[in-house]
Design a protein around this nucleic acid. Structure first.
Ligand SMILES: NC(=O)c1ccc[n+]([C@@H]2O[C@H](COP(=O)([O-])OP(=O)(O)OC[C@H]3O[C@@H](n4cnc5c(N)ncnc54)[C@H](O)[C@@H]3O)[C@@H](O)[C@H]2O)c1
Ligand SMILES: NC(=O)c1ccc[n+]([C@@H]2O[C@H](COP(=O)([O-])OP(=O)(O)OC[C@H]3O[C@@H](n4cnc5c(N)ncnc54)[C@H](O)[C@@H]3O)[C@@H](O)[C@H]2O)c1
Lengths: 240, 240
DNA sequence: AGAAGTTTGTGAACGGTTGCACAAACTCCG
DNA sequence: CGGAGTTTGTGCAACCGTTCACAAACTTCT
């Protein structure tokens, strides 16, 4: 039960909910980066910026930035640039930070607790409205004024808070079962920290964050770097 | 100082160290996923698997899996499949989990501490050999037998441990300065958790993990889901 | 007002990634 | 031993994402 249309994930985090309107997935992934850069600029009192400067702040090519923004509309002025505050508003509206999203965290071990304590959450339009864990040691504890409740009460908590976004920080073995329950309860977005591939029906978006995977990608490149040095030494030493 | 060839990051995590040999970056990003699936299979006593079954476990298309593996060599047997243990060894060798990589963590607040406590680290070929933080409350504390040292001793710690991979979990404001020092000390791979764009010279690989970004991508899709419902209601109500 | 300078928005070319479809290579069974 | 069945490895075509390059639209200066 509950492993219908797949829509799995695996390395490339691309999966669309239904038939998309038009903005490419790659662009969507960059919008938050632009938003952060704009916020930083606004904080420093800058109110107009060119695509070149904003692109540099966001770490992308300026043509790419302009193309990305062009999917949202024509919010710049030729010969001038973009109004920081206005552009921020427009991207924010697109990304959905107009209203505050209620989020439920499942699993409050090492990682889940760190996430719950994280303040950067709030400033980006998310609020942790519920936290559940089966451990008696954790139930009742409060983080930022919200109490941890029993995993058994997951149903009530989701219903009570209306959270559509869940953060999964349980052991890998438990992740799929929890995800199934969440999906059944109407959760349609899951951020998965457990090192496992989640099967969810179509219409549910899953993004995974896998620290081990990231490190292994870095290790691969490290490996190649030392391989190269090795090869160079050999070439120098025993010149064929 | 120290912002030479850029090699920045921004949404799409693609950046190659030098001139790559041949394996596409997209494939490299999936190898750890395959590795994890193979380990899980091996634990369950399965010793042979077809591309179809492995692809399902990894959440990818079977043609893609076969193509990915073909970059490494011909490790399968037609009509049979892949030997789990052998394939695991081969991918592991490629990814660099043959030897254990020393890793230094900078910044041991909420997140850094959670990472340091994380055991899944070790099982994937990484060992936290040093942890530094400027806070007097943290210096001297031990996690898994390793003591937290003063940020001022960063130079000695990197030299002593020979770590080429660093994990950055400092506040965003401090990240660039720490990265500059790390790069100067010879660190060539950085996993960045701070919500900021790092500028590093060519030859240094940066991967970033940004929880806020991930949530905002999910929020975007949530937004569109409710937009769709909205539009449908309107269409039903005031049928033009 | 007109010319020179600046910067956006986008068509078009390019390069990388994915998935199909099928020959080649194997196993199994009669 | 030969034919049926299975599964890999890969050429190829479609797709997606990135970057170049330039006209259009604006500002500024004279
Ligand atoms: N800690 C890290 O830095 C880190 C990094 C990357 C990935 N992860 C992954 O994140 C997950 C959590 O890691 P952690 O270090 O916090 O582990 P942890 O063991 O500290 O915490 C797991 C928590 O989940 C709870 N739990 C157990 N069974 C549950 C269930 N069926 N439903 C809901 N909750 C349940 C436990 O009570 C515990 O509080 C793991 O899958 C881990 O692989 C952790
Ligand atoms: N906690 C999370 O769940 C979470 C999630 C996503 C991103 N982040 C990001 O990760 C980073 C760390 O988050 P956190 O919640 O652990 O913050 P934190 O404030 O709990 O920890 C930051 C740590 O960095 C140390 N530090 C301060 N200045 C430093 C410097 N110059 N060099 C080295 N260390 C320094 C501090 O002493 C502290 O221990 C932040 O950039 C945050 O935005 C955190």
């Amino acid at each position: 039960m509950s492993s219908a249309g797949r829509s799995l994930d695996g390395g490339s985090q691309v999966q669309v909910a239904a038939a998309a309107k038009g903005i490419p997935e790659a662009t969507i992934a960059r919008l938050p980066v632009y938003l952060r850069a704009l916020t930083s600029l606004a904080d420093r009192g800058i109110d107009t910026i060119s695509s070149g400067a904003l692109a540099e702040a966001a770490g992308v090519n300026s043509a790419q930035l302009r193309k990305d923004l062009s999917y949202l509309g024509s919010y710049g002025t030729r010969g001038v640039g973009y109004d920081v505050e206005y552009l921020r508003f427009q991207i924010g509206r697109e990304v959905g930070s107009a209203h505050e999203w209620p989020v439920i965290i499942v699993g409050l071990g090492n990682l889940g607790t760190a996430l719950a304590n994280y303040s950067g959450f709030t400033s980006r339009g998310f609020r942790v409205v519920a936290m559940v864990d089966p451990s008696p040691d954790l139930i009742g504890k409060r983080i930022h004024g919200v109490a941890i409740t029993d995993l058994a009460d997951l149903e009530e908590e989701v219903a009570r808070t209306g959270a559509a976004i869940a953060v999964l920080a349980t052991p890998a073995e438990a992740a799929q079962a929890v995800a199934d329950r969440l999906v059944y309860l109407g959760v349609t977005s899951i951020l998965n920290f457990a090192a496992t591939v989640l099967a969810v029906p179509d219409g549910v978006n899953v993004r995974k964050v896998d620290l081990g995977q990231e490190l292994q990608i870095l290790a691969y490149h490290e490996q190649r770097k030392s391989d190269d040095v090795q090869r160079e030494l050999e070439r120098g030493g025993t010149a064929q």
